[in-house]
Amino acid sequence: MRTKILIVAGIAAAGYVLGTRANRPVARESVRHQLVRLWNDPKARKRREQQAKQLQKDAGKTAKRLRKDAGKKAEHLAKAARKRAKDLGR
C-alpha cells in the first residue's frame, strides 16, 4: 500500500512540474523583444555610429599604410631585379 501511494505521489509531482512548465511563456519572444528594444535605443544607435566612423577612419589609415609599404616593397624588388639582371649580363 505504501509503494502505491509513493507511485501516485511521484506521478502527481511529475504532472505538476510538466504542467507548470507548459504554461510558461516562450523565452525566445522576450529575448527578441529585448534585442529589438536595445537595437532601437538612441544611446546604442549613437554608439554604433561612432564605432562605424572609427572603423572607417582606421581602415583608411591601414589602407594608406599598406599602399606605402607595398610601394617600398615594389621599389626594393625592382632594385634587386635590376641588380640581378646586371649581374647576369656581365
Rank of each mutant, 00 (worst) to 15 (best):
Met1His: 13
Arg2Gln: 11
Arg2Pro: 09
Thr3Lys: 14
Thr3Ser: 14
Ile7Arg: 11
Ile7His: 09
Val8Gln: 11
Gly10Asp: 14
Gly10Met: 12
Ile11Ala: 13
Ala12Cys: 11
Gly15His: 00
Tyr16Leu: 15
Tyr16Pro: 00
Val17Ser: 07
Leu18Trp: 07
Leu18His: 02
Leu18Asp: 00
Leu18Ile: 12
Gly19His: 04
Arg21Ile: 09
Arg21Ala: 03
Ala22Leu: 10
Asn23His: 06
Asn23Met: 12
Pro25Leu: 00
Val26His: 13
Arg28Asp: 15
Arg28Ile: 12
Glu29Ala: 09
Val31Ala: 08
Gln34Phe: 07
Leu35Arg: 15
Arg37Asn: 11
Leu38Ile: 08
Trp39His: 14
Asn40Met: 07
Asn40Ile: 02
Lys43Phe: 07
Arg45Tyr: 05
Glu49Gln: 09
Gln50Ile: 02
Gln51Thr: 04
Ala52Arg: 05
Lys53Asp: 07
Lys53Leu: 06
Gln54Ala: 13
Gln56Ile: 08
Lys57Tyr: 10
Asp58Ala: 15
Lys61Arg: 13
Thr62Pro: 00
Ala63Pro: 00
Lys64Ser: 13
Leu66Thr: 13
Leu66Asn: 13
Lys72Pro: 02
Ala74His: 06
Ala74Leu: 04
Glu75Asn: 07
His76Phe: 08
Leu77Arg: 02
Ala78Val: 02
Lys79Cys: 00
Arg82Ala: 06
Lys83Ile: 04
Ala85Asn: 05
Ala85Cys: 01
Lys86Gln: 07
Asp87Asn: 04
Leu88Pro: 01
Gly89Met: 05
Arg90Val: 09
